[in-house]
Amino acid sequence: MRHVIFLFFIVLTFNSGLFAQQSQEPWSSSQLIEPATLASKINLNQTGNLLILSVGPDAVIKGSVGIGSAKEQANVKKLKSYLKNISKDKEVIIYCGCCPFDKCPNIRPAFKTLNDMGFKNAKLLNLSKNIKANWIDKNYPTSD
């Protein structure tokens, strides 16, 4: 019985951590786009209506624009200026991929900027681990 209780607490701890994290994020789960989905769009040249922005250390993804790490205020300013004349209906996908979401300092200020500017189709690329594990290692299209 003690083991069952122990197990219950383990599950509870893991789950509560995950839920707590989800509820505080500036994006909703429906705003996450899967790497496989984006990779397929790039490979099929279906990115005409998309804007793919890197808000991390490097623009690894083919066709993406490197804004720079959004943890730096200067790069948030750069992001705002880059988006100034873009239609608010445009699908804007941001990504970083330095680290797992809980450790990434860039995606939150960037996504908040998109929200504040009123972008209705803002998306976050779901690189849950990093750009290597979730993109490069899967041989998805890169910028070189």
């Binding site: 680290c99 990093n130 890169t142």
Partner: peptide, 16 residues
């Protein structure tokens, strides 16, 4: 080379 570095591959690094 960021995450594209050969060492990241050689050492199977998945997280820093």
């Amino acid at each position: 080379k960021y995450w594209k570095s050969q060492v990241a591959k050689d050492y199977a690094i998945t997280e820093l």
